[in-house]
Design a protein around this nucleic acid. Structure first.
Lengths: 190, 190
DNA sequence: AGGAAAACTTACCTATTAGTAAGTTATTAT
DNA sequence: ATAATAACTTACTAATAGGTAAGTTTTCCT
């Protein structure tokens, strides 16, 4: 038999993330994951009892990841624009692969999800929103950014531009995403 | 037997639209429709051979609807802000029922759809985008609106704010949508 | 009134989905 | 070395999905 893969669990998460961002939560199955990993679907169930548990772990992964980003940005000596760039870059990468952000993907399927997942998504949204909002308001305070809306509203505008930007890019092309990306920066530049 | 319903086809479209906006394309089945209509699922297949055909008809419905709106706005003597309001109102109504726009819903499932549907969605997007873009540029020309981006980019920003706005509202609440809606207007007001 | 066409129902089918119970193999700790 | 545990596979479910063929009922047209 082939050598045992000790990080199947992480591989499942990696593939699950890819699938949800490319096809959507209700459009992929455990069979898709097990096929790509060359294991049986029961192996996926071993690591994540049900699809709901996998989704929960996936969202938690995102939360951990954004918490890490928040720390890194705090520790860095980047200006506000640089910090926003680091954030926006993630969406640009999604766009490259015709994928959409997990928040947008889940938002579409939101009404089919159990409450536990809904709450976890809310946690993720709150984290991302406060990261963007703080970056914006701190940047404004330091004179590195300029905008007229309150920081929270400006963060909402920025977030929705990005989230729907990658969605739209799938349909009408990547140039539209690029136009949005540049306009976002112009909106907050001094 | 009960009286025959002669507009089953339109009812199917109505319910299908509701389901796709509330649950998403890959999360509803013909059984959901037939149950609500008190017919058998074969009856749904009689009117729309397959799910793909139903989706096509649904998108065509939207196209017709937006073409009508474009005509109505052209024929009206509303100012640009008033025209935008008519457009935005549609999203506000979606938000009220925890629904999202069909474009956002389909964008999430885009990579699972056959090419015929993809092309039809592109047609819809182009129509909506040109409606918004024209309203914006005409408003600017008449001095009723003011913004610094080119009209096409401003339309992209507005569209993405709305599309993701209703998505976000599902998760973080309707107040966020309201904040976005008001900010959109401020962005283009003279 | 009678026939054609429309609008269904009945009764299937096949594929897939999420999931489980029980057994097997490999790894680790003692 | 061995027992426990982790990481699987084998071999199933039951439910649902999307779909079809053939028959029945209703409506429309003449």
């Amino acid at each position: 038999m082939s050598a045992r893969n000790t990080d199947t669990k992480e591989e499942i998460l990696r593939i699950g993330k890819q699938l949800i961002q490319f096809y959507g939560y209700n459009a992929f199955s455990y069979a898709d994951i097990s096929r790509e990993l060359n294991v049986k679907n029961a192996a996926v169930h071993y690591h994540f009892r049900g699809k709901e548990d996998l989704l929960m772990a996936l969202i938690q992964n995102y939360i951990d990841n954004y918490q890490l980003l928040a720390q890194q940005l705090k520790a860095s000596n980047l200006k506000a624009i640089g910090k926003l760039d680091k954030f926006i870059e993630r969406y640009s990468m999604l766009c490259e692969t015709n994928s959409i952000c997990i928040i947008g993907s889940i938002a579409s399927d939101f009404n089919t999800l159990p409450n536990s997942v809904k709450e976890k998504v809310t946690e993720l949204i709150n984290l991302v929103m406060s990261l963007v909002e703080q970056t914006l308001s701190e940047g404004k305070r330091k004179g590195e950014l300029a905008f007229t809306e309150v920081a929270r509203t400006q963060a909402l505008l920025l977030m929705t531009n990005l989230a729907a930007g990658v969605q739209l890019a799938r349909i009408s092309g990547k140039k539209d995403y690029e136009a949005i990306r540049k306009a976002i920066i112009r909106q907050v530049k001094v």
